[in-house]
Simulated assay, not measured.
Amino acid sequence: MDLIWWLLWIFWFTAYIYVVIVVITDLFRDENLSGWFKALWIIALVFVPFLTALIYVIARGKGMAERARERYAGVPEADDYRPSASVSPAEDIAKAKALLDAGTITQGEFDALKSKALGNQYFGA
Rank of each mutant, 00 (worst) to 15 (best):
V22I: 11
D79S: 15
R67A: 02
V75T: 12
W12S: 13
Y16V: 02
K62Y: 10
K38W: 02
R69I: 08
A68H: 05
W5D: 15
Y18C: 07
I43S: 11
A53L: 03
L7Q: 11
A39P: 00
I10F: 13
P76S: 09
L113R: 12
A102F: 06
A15K: 09
V20D: 01
W41A: 05
Y72E: 11
G119A: 08
D2P: 06
T14A: 13
D80A: 15
L40P: 00
F28T: 04
K38A: 02
V22Y: 07
I93Y: 07
L118G: 07
A117M: 07
A65C: 04
T25D: 12
K95T: 06
V75S: 12
K62I: 08
A125E: 15
P89H: 06
G63S: 06
E70H: 10
T14G: 12
I42Y: 01
T25R: 12
M64N: 03
W36E: 13
I42K: 00
D26V: 02
V23M: 04
D2I: 05
F123Y: 09
R60I: 05
F28M: 05
T106K: 03
S88A: 08
Y56V: 02
Y56S: 03
A96P: 01
E91Q: 13
D79K: 15
R67W: 02
M64Y: 05
T52Q: 02
L51T: 12
L54I: 10
A96R: 00
L3D: 11
N32Q: 15
F37D: 08
A98C: 01
T52Y: 07
I105K: 00
F123C: 05
F110W: 11
V19H: 01
R82W: 10
T104V: 15
S88V: 03
L99W: 05
S34C: 14
A102H: 07
I55Y: 10
N120T: 06
G119R: 02
T14C: 14
D2Y: 08
A44P: 00
L40W: 08
G61C: 04
A65Y: 07
S84V: 15
A78K: 15
A73M: 10
D26L: 00
A117L: 08
N32L: 09
I93R: 06
K38V: 03
Q121R: 10
A59K: 11
G124S: 11
P49V: 04
S84E: 14
I55Q: 00
R60V: 06
V22A: 11
R60K: 13
K97P: 01
M1W: 05
R71H: 07
T25Y: 09
K116I: 08
Y18V: 10
A96E: 02
W5Y: 13
K116Q: 09
L113W: 03
G119I: 05
I24K: 06
S88L: 04
E66V: 12
G124L: 14
I93T: 07
V57G: 03
P89L: 01
A78M: 14
D101H: 02
F37A: 02
G74Y: 06
V75M: 13
A102C: 07
W5N: 14
V75A: 12
I42D: 00
V23Y: 01
L40V: 14
T25F: 13
V20P: 03
F28N: 09
A73E: 13
L51Y: 13
A98D: 04
A90N: 05
R69H: 10
